[in-house]
């Protein structure tokens, strides 16, 4: 990657990120994320009753919270460009399609990371109350960060399919829900009746949950990281294919 493509990605990302903060989306998402994580951690997860100095009751909700919040952030990525017609402007600039895709993705990921980092008071709280394993907490944040990135890449892909943000949002939620539930017995049972075993195993292995859980427990295994990164790369690649197919003949 040369200097020019890096500069192009940075320019696109900077614009995208400023775009979030010039609309109420950013503030709404951040506030709701913080409120909900607080609610689930303390009220539903009974953080204080567990008597453990760990953030497990906090991270355990992330796959479900992200299920709605990440598509809300990602749904506009490409559908908004298509609705406004600015996609024509952006893609006729002297940049490549993948620079635009990566730039936009990085900006939204950075935004989600910011929201995630604003939960730092929780870390301070456990550190004050007890003696937590900071390595595990660090892994928890890494896992959550990768999870957000994966969902976001899915949203990027669905938003490239349509100019309608609502459709983009719903399809993205369903796709992310599939990623959560893929290894869940009711889903695999549905397949096991008729599908060959390689397909059942294949579908089950798509699930984010085992990978997310591994990292939550403090096991930062390269295969788990590789899983999340491959979801991201695959979805961004598909985003590129979708955009190209619309332009191509």
């Amino acid at each position: 990657m040369n200097k020019e493509s890096f500069a192009n990605i940075a320019t696109v990302a900077k614009r995208e990120l400023t775009g979030y903060f010039s609309s109420p989306v950013a503030y709404v998402v951040i506030i709701i994320f913080l409120l909900l994580t607080g609610f689930f951690t303390f009220m539903v997860g009974r953080f204080f009753d567990t008597g453990e100095a760990s953030l497990a009751p906090f991270f355990i909700w992330h796959p479900w919270l992200y299920l709605f919040l990440v598509p809300a952030v990602g749904m506009r990525l490409w559908s908004e460009e298509r609705r406004l017609g600015t996609i024509e402007l952006l893609l006729t600039m002297p940049i490549t399609t993948w620079q635009a895709i990566v730039g936009k993705f990085v900006a939204s990921w950075a935004f989600l990371t910011l929201a995630l980092m604003l939960t730092f008071p929780l870390v301070l709280t456990v550190a004050y109350l007890g003696n937590p394993d900071l390595g595990v907490i660090f892994c928890g944040y890494i896992g959550s960060f990768l999870l957000a990135g994966s969902y976001l890449a899915v949203s990027s892909m669905t938003s490239a399919m349509t100019r309608n943000q609502v459709i983009s949002f719903i399809v993205s939620v369903v796709a992310c829900l599939f990623l959560i539930l893929a290894g869940w017995p009711p889903v695999t049972n549905m397949l096991v009746e008729w599908a060959p075993s390689w397909l059942v195993e294949g579908v089950a292995s798509l699930s984010v949950m085992p990978h997310f859980d591994d990292i939550q427990r403090g096991l930062l295994d390269s295969s788990d990281v590789f899983y999340f990164l491959s979801v991201i790369v695959f979805c961004l690649f598909t985003t590129g294919v979708l955009i190209r197919s619309e332009r191509g003949g």
């Binding site: 406004l84 017609g85 600015t86 402007l89 006729t92 002297p94």
Partner: peptide, 20 residues
């Protein structure tokens, strides 16, 4: 990329990022 550098383009309906 080389050809796009030489071109200035005003698309139909003059789109722009309205939040900027």
């Amino acid at each position: 990329i080389a050809s796009k550098k030489l071109v200035g383009y005003l698309p139909e309906n003059a789109p722009s990022y309205t939040d900027m």
